[in-house]
């Protein structure tokens, strides 16, 4: 699985309250959530993300509440992959479960600038920064997590598994 896009940069400790503020959580519509992605920190984010970007953050991305609406809002706003030094654990699991690739790469926030052209190779656990002509190492995801991402999330993955058992 290879993913390419321009980098949009955020700092450390970006919490889920700013990724999608509480007042929007009564909506079950991903497109509606997407309009307000990152509104608490960058009101122009939805516009920036249109057409597909790779979000690059520092430490502890997605800390705070368990709201799955946070990765959903990012995914539907156009985020194709999130790279961070490391993630808060519930966000990390939620992103994988809804089929939004996330990759830990300690130090990545210092290797990438806004607008750099990146290609992420999930199977290899490598990031190529074409703008800076640099290869950045990431922590390769375990195979069972790659399987979930290939199935575009846990629900499809389970459907396949359960369907497989039945037939």
């Amino acid at each position: 699985m290879k993913i390419s896009g321009k980098a949009v940069i955020f700092g450390d400790d970006v919490n889920t309250d700013v990724i999608i503020p509480s007042k929007y959580l009564t909506s079950l519509d991903p497109e509606e959530l997407a309009k307000h992605a990152m509104e608490g920190i960058d009101p122009n984010f939805a516009e920036k993300a249109k057409g597909g970007i790779i979000l690059v953050a520092g430490k502890n991305f997605g800390c705070g509440s368990s709201r799955e609406q946070a990765p959903i809002a990012l995914k539907y706003a156009g985020v194709k992959c999130v790279l961070a030094d490391f993630f808060a654990r519930i966000f990390y699991r939620n992103a994988i479960n809804i089929g939004l690739p996330v990759l830990e790469s300690p130090g990545v926030s210092k290797e990438v600038d806004e607008g750099d052209m990146l290609t992420v190779d999930l199977e290899e656990g490598k990031i190529v920064n074409a703008t800076k002509n640099k290869v950045i190492d990431a922590l390769r995801l375990p195979d069972f997590i790659l399987e979930i991402l290939k199935d575009e999330g846990l629900i499809n993955h389970l459907k396949k598994k359960i369907g497989g058992k039945r037939s």
Partner: peptide
């Protein structure tokens, strides 16, 4: 421990988690 909604759906179905 806290988990998200999709993961909870899997727990509802299987009673298990990783």
């Amino acid at each position: 421990t806290g988990i998200g909604s999709t993961e909870m759906a899997a727990v509802f179905a299987t009673g298990e988690i990783w």
